[in-house]
């Protein structure tokens, strides 16, 4: 899996939301995103039992 590049993601998401990230804030925002990414990896590694391909539209 490609390693998470917090800066690349930050730039793309900030452009999509039209939220400017000042140059002096970039490192700190990227570091926060990297911390969130680490938490997300824990949660994304969990799959609902017997539900790996669950379709959210299904009852």
């Amino acid at each position: 899996m490609t390693p998470f590049d917090a800066c690349t993601y930050m730039d793309a998401a900030a452009a999509a939301l039209a939220v400017p990230i000042p140059p002096e804030r970039r490192d700190a925002v990227a570091a926060n995103l990297a911390r969130l990414h680490a938490l997300a990896q824990e949660v994304l590694a969990w799959q609902p039992p017997g539900d790996a391909l669950h379709d959210p539209q299904d009852p």
């Binding site: 990230i21 995103l33 997300a40």
Partner: peptide, 13 residues
């Protein structure tokens, strides 16, 4: 900085 990071978080997370 935390609010900036939070608002950018992917919805799938």
């Amino acid at each position: 900085d935390r609010f900036l990071a939070h608002v950018l978080m992917p919805v799938q997370w």
